[in-house]
């Protein structure tokens, strides 16, 4: 069993790592990492913008964005992926690469989820911080940037990381529209071997677990470092950061 796994890795490591590249498109683990990183990096600012729009005093901004977030959150991701995959080329006539389709869909979907986390973090701060900022003469955007968001995002680190982790897991769905990622490579390997699906998909599971675990681990270190800095080096009476319950647990 272990020997099978080792043999598979020895024979197919390059395919699992970079797919058909350089004879075909980049795939495998490399593409999974790129897709995950891009999705997270783009979904994060999108989420902040969506959250600010949902908290805006202008209805013209608030209502459409609220509708977008509700609809996106209420629909299975797979359905969104298939819609974008079939409908966008149909409407626009453009030939969109499946990687781009997947990336865009993930950014919108995870951006919507993450925006709820960010919004909850802002609301949980209460009005006192904003009052103080305004009383000192800060503009609302300046207050958001320097006073509200740094606290809200910090308080939400656990929930934000959960969303990042599920973004990584969700990249596997790109398989259905032929995004050449790690899952796609693994299924190619499986098709060639035919007899060892358990071993192949065990490798797949272990790799995804390692990626997600590393991310969580790094996030924990960062969080602990910030907490320690705020508590001072003495480690004495530490300010207890309010960490609201996981709002997005339904997603995991």
């Amino acid at each position: 069993m272990i020997n099978d796994v080792i043999a598979i890795i020895q024979d197919y490591w390059l395919l699992l790592l970079i797919g058909q590249y350089p004879n075909g498109p980049l795939g495998g683990l490399a593409n999974t990492l790129i897709l995950s990183a891009l999705s997270i990096m783009l979904a994060f600012p999108v989420a902040i913008l969506l959250a600010l729009a949902r908290l805006s005093k202008w209805r013209l901004l608030r209502w459409p964005v609220t509708a977008l977030v509700y609809i996106t959150r209420g629909v299975p991701l797979l359905m969104l992926i298939l819609w974008s995959y079939f409908l966008v080329p149909l409407w626009t006539g453009a030939d969109v690469p499946s990687f781009v389709t997947m990336l865009t869909t993930l950014v919108v979907y995870q951006g919507a989820f993450l925006s709820e986390v960010v919004r909850a973090g802002i609301v949980a701060l209460g009005s006192g911080q904003m009052d103080a900022a305004r009383a000192l003469g800060h503009s609302s955007l300046g207050a958001m940037r320097f006073i509200i968001l740094p606290q809200a995002l910090y308080n939400m680190i656990p929930s934000i990381i959960s969303t990042f982790v599920s973004t990584i897991k969700d990249t596997t769905l790109g398989y259905v529209i032929n995004v050449p990622d790690l899952t796609f490579a693994a299924s190619q390997v499986n098709n060639q071997l035919l007899t060892q699906p358990f071993q192949v998909f065990l490798i797949l599971a272990v790799v995804y677990y390692a990626i997600c675990w590393s991310l969580t681990h790094v996030a924990n270190i960062v969080e602990r470092r910030i907490t320690r800095r705020r508590a001072g080096l003495s480690g004495g009476a530490a300010p207890v950061a309010l960490v609201p319950a996981k709002i997005i647990s339904e997603q995991l």
Binding site: A132, S139, Y154
Partner: peptide, 29 residues
């Protein structure tokens, strides 16, 4: 905002910015 910055306000609950050190709280605005 300019007008507000010329009227100091002290709150019952202090409302200090907990993510900034004391000197940063005072110097930031």
């Amino acid at each position: 905002n300019l007008l507000r910055s010329r009227i100091g306000f002290v709150f019952q609950n202090f409302n200090l910015f907990p993510h900034l050190s004391v000197v940063e709280n005072v110097a930031m605005s």
